[in-house]
Write a protein that binds this DNA or RNA. Structure first.
Lengths: 229, 229
DNA sequence: CGTGGGGTTGATACAGTTCAAGATACGTGG
DNA sequence: CCACGTATCTTGAACTGTATCAACCCCACG
C-alpha cells in the first residue's frame, strides 16, 4: 500500500486511535484494492479471510437459499463488513459483491484478531463498528416485519431524498431488480408500488424520481426513527 | 447481591476473565432481580439504563409501529440484551418484557461503558456477546426474507425438537399468539400452518406436538445452517 | 354452571408472486 | 446516424400466500 493510501486509511474511525505500532501491523498486511462491478468478494458459508471496508463505490450484501437470492443491504463508504464473522472466526452468513466499481480495504482476519487482543483503542473502535452494524440489521428486520412493501418503498424514498441532498429528487443509482430485492419485493411489484405512490406525490422524471408533495408522502410512509435512518 | 449470586454471575462468560477489581466495580452496582411474567423491562425509544442478562426464565424482545407489534426474539438464559444500545449510549430499538417468571441481572450502563474502556478481557467478552447477537439477527432477517410462513414454522419445529432433547416431541412452552408473531404470521395462520404440516409427519398430542416423520419434515423444511441454529 | 380467553375454522379480501407479453432504453455494428 | 438486438422495465391476468373478520369451540376458573 502506498503512503497516500495508508494516510487515508489512518483517518478511518476504526484506526484513528490505534497506536502506531499496531496500526503498522494491521496495514502492512492489508490490501487496498480496486474491483470492477459484479465481483464476488465473499461467499456465504466460507470462513472470512479479511475484514473488509468499502472505501469507494458500492457493495451489495446478499444471501441465497433454495435457489432464491435476497439482497440484505447495500453498503457505501465507509462501512466495515463481516466484522462479526472475523472476530469469532466463524463462517460468513452472507455473500458480498461489488455493485459499482469499488475500492476495498482488506485486512487479514488473523491480524485483526491479533491486534484486537492487544490494542484497547482498536477493540473499542471495532465494537463500535459492530454495534452500528448490529443496529442496522435490527432496523431492517423491523422494517420487514412491521411494514408492507409499498411502505418500505415510500420510506426508502424519503431516506434517499435526504441522503441525496433534500432537493426533492432521487436518482436511481442502482438497478431496479437490486433495489426491489433489497426492499423485499419482486421487480414487478416495485414497478406497481412506484405507480401507487403517484397518489402521494411521487413522479418519474426520466432516469430519476421526483417527490412533488413530500408531506403527502410522509403521511403515507409514516417514517419512524426507530426503524429508518 | 448476595455472595452466592455474585459467585454465579462470576461464572458467566461475560465476566469469566475480568479482573477482580473491575468485576467488583460492575457487580457492586448491579442488581439480580426477579420479575413476574408480563413485566416490561425496556421500552423502545428510551436510553438504556442497564445492560440486561437473562439468568432464568424467558424474555421477549418486541417492537411496535403504527399500532402493530411484532416479536423479534425470545431469549433464554444466559443471553445478554441490548448490548449495542448500552455501548453506544443510544436509544433502544426494541422493547423487552418477561414472558415467564424471570431472573434478570441488571448492570448499570455507565459502569459497563466504564469497565469496558479499562478492561480488555471484558471488552473482548462484550464484543463476542455482541457478535453472537448480531449473527442471530442476521439469521432472523434471512429467515424472514427467504422463507414463507410454513417453512419458518417447520424449521422452528426442527430447532425446538433438537433443543428439547431430540425425542421427537416439542412442548409449546409459550403461547401461540407470541409464537406466531415471533415467526412472522398471525395466530390464525399458525393454526393453519400446523395443520398443513400434518402432511409432513407433525401431529398434535395434547398440549404438545409430535414429529412422527422427521425425514419428511426435514425434506419440506430444508434446514440451512446459515439461517437456523 | 356460566363466563372468558386462547385457539381453531371458515369465508372473504387483499397483498404479493408468477408467467407472459409488450414497451422502453441502450449499446453495437453496419 | 440509423437499425438492430439485448437488457431492463412495465403492464396485464391468473394464482398463491397471508391477513382479516366473524363464528365457534374448548377448557380453565370463578
Amino acid at each position: 500500500m502506498r503512503q497516500a493510501e495508508s494516510d487515508l486509511v489512518r483517518t478511518l474511525p476504526l484506526f484513528k486511535d490505534v497506536n502506531e505500532k499496531h496500526f503498522y501491523e494491521l496495514i502492512s498486511a492489508a490490501f487496498l484494492q480496486r474491483f470492477p462491478p459484479g465481483v464476488t468478494l465473499i461467499r456465504e458459508g466460507n470462513l472470512p479471510d479479511f475484514l473488509h471496508i468499502v472505501v469507494e463505490g458500492k457493495v451489495e450484501l446478499f444471501a441465497s437459499h433454495d435457489s432464491h437470492e435476497t439482497v440484505l443491504d447495500i453498503l457505501e463508504p465507509l462501512t466495515t463488513f463481516i466484522p462479526a464473522a472475523v472476530i469469532r472466526d466463524e463462517v460468513c452468513l452472507k455473500s458480498a459483491r461489488t455493485l459499482a466499481a469499488a475500492q476495498i480495504l482488506l485486512i487479514p482476519a488473523p491480524a485483526v484478531r491479533d491486534v484486537f487482543d492487544r490494542d484497547a483503542a482498536f477493540a473499542r473502535a471495532l465494537v463500535n463498528e459492530l454495534a452500528v452494524r448490529y443496529r442496522c440489521v435490527e432496523r431492517s428486520l423491523k422494517n420487514e416485519k412491521l411494514r408492507n412493501s409499498t411502505e418500505r418503498l415510500a420510506n426508502w424514498l424519503l431516506q434517499e431524498e435526504a441522503r441525496q441532498g433534500n432537493n426533492r429528487r432521487v436518482a436511481l443509482d442502482i438497478d431496479k431488480r437490486t433495489l426491489a430485492s433489497r426492499l423485499g419485493m419482486t421487480p414487478e411489484n416495485l414497478s406497481r408500488n412506484l405507480a401507487q405512490l403517484s397518489k402521494h406525490g411521487v413522479s418519474k422524471s426520466g432516469a430519476d424520481l421526483a417527490i412533488n408533495d413530500i408531506d403527502s408522502l410522509r403521511k403515507f410512509a409514516k417514517p419512524n426513527s426507530l426503524i429508518d435512518q
